[in-house]
Amino acid sequence: MKLVAAMKQALHALEQPPGMSSLAIAQELDIDGLCAWRLDGFPLSFWYFERVDHVFVVRLVGQPQDPEHIEVMNN
């Protein structure tokens, strides 16, 4: 239940005004607009793109994973 609560909290934060997340992963992977938001209390991050009317989450990524080996779709 703690994980679900952390996920809901993170998704709620992503719905707030844009620009609050890290773009470091976008620079590292050379994927324009890819953002990351870490879940409080867990070694997990949402990877997502901000759109005009929604947030498009593409992955829930465990921190130990190597991002260079994860393919991300940019829709």
Results as ranks from 00 to 15, higher is better:
Ala6Asn: 01
Leu23Asn: 02
Ala26Cys: 02
Leu60Asp: 03
Arg38Met: 03
Glu15Trp: 10
Arg59Gln: 07
Ala10Trp: 00
Trp37Cys: 09
Leu29Met: 09
Glu68Gly: 14
Arg51Trp: 07
Val58Lys: 06
Phe42Asp: 02
Val57Met: 03
Met20Ser: 13
Glu71Asp: 14
Ile31Met: 07
Ser45His: 10
Leu60Ser: 00
Pro67Glu: 00
Ser22Tyr: 05
Asp53Gln: 13
Asp40Thr: 12
Phe56Pro: 04
Ile70Val: 11
Val58Met: 09
Glu71Met: 12
Gln16Gly: 09
Ala13Glu: 10
Asp32Ala: 15
Glu50Gln: 14
Ala6Glu: 01
Asp53Ser: 13
Pro43Ser: 08
Phe46Asn: 00
Gln27Leu: 04
Ala24Gly: 04
Ala10Arg: 07
Leu11Met: 08
Val72Cys: 03
Ala24Tyr: 06
Val57His: 06
Leu14Thr: 03
Phe46Leu: 04
Glu50Asp: 13
Val4Ile: 08
Ile25Cys: 01
Gln65Phe: 14
Phe49Asp: 04
Gly41Val: 05
Gly19Ala: 03
Met73Leu: 12
Pro67Asn: 00
Leu3Ile: 07
Glu15Tyr: 01
Pro17Ile: 02
Asp30Val: 10
Ala13Gln: 12
Lys8Tyr: 09
Arg51Gly: 10
Gly19Gln: 07
Gly41Glu: 02
Leu11Lys: 12
Gly19Arg: 10
Val61Arg: 10
Ile31Asn: 02
Ile70Trp: 02
Val61Ala: 03
Phe49Glu: 04
Ala24Asp: 07
Asp32Arg: 13
Asn75Lys: 08
Ala24Ile: 05
Met1Ala: 11
Phe56Cys: 12
Glu71Ser: 10
Phe56His: 15
Leu29Thr: 01
Gln65Lys: 14
